[in-house]
């Protein structure tokens, strides 16, 4: 079924004909919903209980004493009130949004570029590129972070040594983490480095599905490279890119391990918190579970709002 459909790719969106629509509806049936059951069950068991618990906790005064059995006090919206009037919290939200936007944009552009390179590159360089990307994708976060930390180390780091020896200035004992902007630069390099392979592979897979004949036809009609990308390739791989974009937004908004690790190594934590680390410090660190739950729910809503457009686009594509 898949082969049949994907092979029948129209060059321009064709108006959907009535028989086509009927055929799809018939195929949908109830059977498909049964197939969703396991996924829904896993979601309910794995996420349902914690989510409900979290919602309840966000309306409670829940600290370490409650963890050891003291009855939690219902305080209504107090946690939310405290949160929304906290200037540090808004700082964290703004920083996270900017960080997310920059990282997602860089990751998408670099990832898609790599995919295009893979498509054109001869076999050997392509395989080398693919293997290297697979390796950085497969590398455990903490192992990767340790290597990056050594690279950026102020005294013994390769990066300071290289920059100094290239004559780009005196980077002896330059501290990359002490200024928040520079801290985020390092974090961005690492996060983008870790995310590019996924985007590149997905985009590459989509690119291999772009019909050769359409490209040829475009070329014969005199479309230049940019036009071929804009009017043939991009529309074809757009669904795949949309999904990846959405995942990247979610991942980069809740980035935790990399920031938490870097904060442990250096920098000024209170000036470099993002959503994940701030909630962690609030909850696990200071045992303010009520406040942390309230903030986490806010982040959930924020994520849904940010990705709503893309979810909507996907669902719309579904019902065309």
């Amino acid at each position: 079924m898949t082969d049949q459909e994907t092979a029948r790719v129209p060059l321009t969106p064709t108006p959907v004909t009535a028989p086509d629509r009927r055929r799809r509806r018939r195929r949908g049936g109830l059977g498909g919903y049964w197939l969703l059951l396991p996924a829904i069950a896993v979601l309910l068991i794995g996420e349902g209980y914690p989510l409900v618990r979290q919602v309840i906790m966000s309306f409670q005064e829940f600290g370490r004493a409650q963890q050891f059995g003291a009855p939690p006090e219902w305080i209504g919206l107090d946690n939310y009130r405290a949160l929304f009037t906290d200037s540090q919290m808004w700082g964290v939200v703004v920083r996270s949004l900017v960080f997310c936007a920059v990282n997602v944009a860089l990751t998408m552009v670099i990832g898609t570029t790599f995919a295009l390179i893979m498509l054109r590159a001869p076999r050997v360089p392509r395989v080398v590129l693919q293997v290297s990307m697979l390796l950085c994708w497969a590398m455990p976060v903490i192992a990767a972070m340790t290597a990056w930390q050594w690279l950026f180390d102020s005294r013994y780091g390769l990066i300071n040594w290289t920059l100094t020896n290239l004559g780009l200035g005196d980077f002896t004992r330059h501290n990359w983490l002490i200024e928040p902007l520079s801290f985020y630069l390092v974090a961005t390099v690492i996060v983008v480095w870790m995310s590019v392979p996924f985007v590149a592979f997905t985009a590459y897979a989509a690119l291999t599905q772009v019909p050769e004949d359409a490209l040829e036809a475009g070329q014969i009609d005199g479309a230049n490279a940019w036009q071929r990308w804009r009017f043939i390739i991009y529309p074809s791989i757009r669904p795949a890119l949309t999904i990846v974009l959405m995942l990247q937004i979610v991942w980069d908004l809740r980035v935790f391990a990399q920031i938490h690790y870097l904060q442990g190594v250096g920098g000024v934590p209170s000036e470099t918190h993002l959503l994940g680390t701030y909630i962690y410090t609030l909850g696990v660190g200071q045992s303010e579970y009520g406040m942390a739950s309230a903030f986490a729910l806010f982040v959930l809503v924020l994520t849904l709002v940010l990705t709503a457009r893309y979810v909507h686009a996907l669902l719309k594509a579904e019902t065309v």
Partner: peptide, 26 residues
């Protein structure tokens, strides 16, 4: 895909909440 994405969204936020602790120990 829609299901996966929905699951990831939920999982993403759920984890990012109170006791998210991947591996850190720096």
């Amino acid at each position: 895909v829609v299901t996966t994405v929905a699951a990831t969204l939920l999982a993403g936020c759920g984890q990012g909440s109170t006791t998210d602790d991947p591996t850190d120990d720096a």
